[in-house]
């Protein structure tokens, strides 16, 4: 099964890259952009099973995200 893990900075954690992108959008003529947060996603192909989603969440917690500053969301892809 295919699973997608979204990883992003927790609210309140300064995102220097997001701030830079926001500045770029302002320069491009979109002054209404109030905030940009950058993140990333991982597409995993894992063995089917009732615990697959929980296992992927554990992988995200152990490696894909750093829980000190990041949170994650697991989504099963069709």
């Amino acid at each position: 099964m295919k699973v997608r893990v979204f990883v992003g900075l927790k609210p309140g954690v300064l995102d220097p890259a997001g701030e830079a992108v926001k500045g770029g959008l302002h320069h491009l003529g979109y002054p209404d952009v109030a905030s940009v947060r950058c993140g990333k996603f991982f597409d995993l192909d894992v063995a089917d099973g009732p615990d697959a989603e929980a296992r992927v969440a554990k992988m995200a917690d152990q490696l894909l995200a750093n829980p000190v500053i990041e949170s994650f969301r697991v989504e099963v892809l069709p």
Binding site: P16, A17, V68
Partner: peptide, 17 residues
């Protein structure tokens, strides 16, 4: 050391990139 939790916190990208 921070990623290994031997020291607290994390090193992020420099504020001014």
């Amino acid at each position: 050391l921070c990623e290994a939790h031997l020291l607290p916190g994390v090193l992020m990208q420099n504020r001014d990139l």
